[in-house]
Write a protein that binds this DNA or RNA. Structure first.
Length: 217
DNA sequence: CGCCAGGCCGTGT
DNA sequence: ACACGGCATGGC
């Protein structure tokens, strides 16, 4: 799949953004939200000098909500972002570099305990924010695998199906050289989103999908 | 107007 | 553990 998708779409130039913190904020804001809307919110934060730990820390809840309103769910996401900053302050002295030094295996459960962080956001933070070789899945990959019959029991939105997808990626890509896998997982997830947007929407057909398979239903 | 978006949470079963 | 509805806004 990776080979075919890369041949069809090329490098996606995804995260990390200019800073790790910006990447992580993007991961929160893009939850069930179009990236074009996220960019508006990120720009709002940037022009207010609030796209940093200190910036978010200094904003009141209402101010933060106002800045991120364009990307939706502002009430929940403002709480979640403030909780993340408090988390980094508390456990890593306000240093994302220090946070990135903790092994992913140890970091993941801590992230999952945070408000507004589920498995996908946690893995996005680990992969794109901290630079770990962490495979990640999303709704598009779930649909693609479901429609290609690659896994059983891929119910929508369940923890089990998410974990099954991540396990499948670990198997498929192997786990011998983590250094290379960081780049691989980075690119593959972005490609998944690219093909999903184009050919694997919720109700839509697979017309013109570059993935070679007649199994797509 | 309707559908969709780079999910997550609370509640009921 | 899962199903299901709610959460909000912008693009097409």
């Amino acid at each position: 799949m990776h080979t075919q998708l890369f041949a069809a779409y090329g490098p996606q130039h995804w995260w990390p953004a200019s800073t790790a913190f910006e990447t992580i904020v993007g991961a929160y804001l893009t939850q069930n939200t179009a990236w074009t809307s996220v960019e508006i919110s990120l720009e709002n934060l940037r022009k207010t000098d609030a796209l940093t730990l200190q910036g978010i820390r200094n904003l009141g809840r209402t101010q933060l909500m106002e800045l991120i309103r364009p990307s939706g769910f502002a009430t929940q996401k403002a709480v979640a972002l403030h909780a993340f900053v408090a988390f980094v302050d508390q456990h890593f002295s306000g240093s994302l570099e220090q946070m990135a030094r903790m092994p992913a295996q140890e970091m993941r459960p801590l992230l999952l305990d945070l408000r507004g962080v589920g498995p996908e956001t946690a893995d996005a933070i680990l992969l794109y924010g901290c630079g770990h070789a962490q495979p990640m899945a999303d709704e598009y990959l779930r649909r693609i695998c479901e429609r290609h019959g690659l896994l059983e029991d891929l119910s929508k939105g369940t923890r089990r199906s998410y974990d099954a997808l991540v396990a499948l990626l670990r198997e498929a890509f192997g786990h011998d050289d983590p250094a290379e896998h960081r780049a691989l997982f980075n690119e593959f997830h972005a490609l998944t989103v690219a093909v999903g947007k184009a050919h694997c929407k919720r109700t839509a057909q697979c017309e013109g999908c570059p993935l070679a398979s007649d199994l797509c239903r």
